[in-house]
Amino acid sequence: MRTRITEVERAEAERPTPIRCPQPDWVLQPARAAADRRPLYVHCGDCPAATGRAITRAQALEALNNGIEGCGLCRPDTALGL
């Protein structure tokens, strides 16, 4: 039994660890309807409600300054110092 445990532990140690994509710092959530092209929200990258595409800090600032709302949950405006 100990031999089997050792074999299983060795196999587990040799298994490659999954590669995870880095988490974005900021996310721009698109509009729900295709007809409305204006994005809905800017999110912090770690926001559980964040869906959309990754954007840079400068793009997040520009979006917030141009009237796109910040998420009420993660408050990217506060995180960006606005």
Rank of each mutant, 00 (worst) to 15 (best):
Q23L: 13
Q23M: 13
Q23K: 12
Q23H: 03
Q23A: 13
Q23S: 12
P24L: 04
P24M: 02
D25M: 10
D25T: 09
D25Q: 14
W26I: 02
W26R: 06
W26V: 05
V27D: 01
V27L: 00
V27T: 07
V27W: 01
V27P: 02
L28A: 07
L28Y: 03
L28H: 03
Q29L: 05
Q29I: 00
Q29K: 11
Q29G: 13
Q29W: 01
P30Q: 07
P30E: 04
P30F: 06
P30L: 07
P30I: 06
A31W: 04
A31S: 15
R32V: 14
R32P: 00
R32M: 12
A33M: 11
A33S: 14
A33N: 13
A33K: 14
A33H: 12
A33W: 04
A33D: 15
A33E: 14
A34Y: 07
A34Q: 12
A35R: 13
A35S: 14
A35V: 14
A35T: 13
A35I: 14
A35M: 10
R37P: 00
R37C: 01
R37Q: 14
R37L: 12
R37F: 04
R38P: 00
R38N: 07
R38E: 11
P39I: 08
Y41A: 01
Y41N: 09
V42C: 07
V42E: 09
V42G: 06
V42Y: 10
V42H: 05
V42L: 08
V42F: 08
V42M: 08
V42D: 09
H43S: 02
H43L: 03
H43F: 05
H43E: 04
C44W: 00
C44S: 07
C44K: 10
G45A: 04
G45C: 05
G45M: 06
G45Y: 05
G45I: 06
G45S: 09
C47Q: 01
P48T: 08
P48Q: 09
P48S: 10
A49Y: 11
A50V: 02
A50G: 05
A50K: 02
T51Q: 12
T51G: 00
T51S: 11
T51M: 08
T51E: 12
T51D: 08
G52K: 03
G52W: 04
G52D: 05
G52F: 08
R53H: 09
R53N: 09
R53K: 12
R53I: 12
A54F: 02
A54W: 01
A54E: 14
I55L: 06
I55V: 15
T56K: 04
T56C: 09
R57V: 07
R57H: 11
R57W: 01
A58N: 10
A58H: 07
A58W: 00
Q59C: 03
Q59A: 15
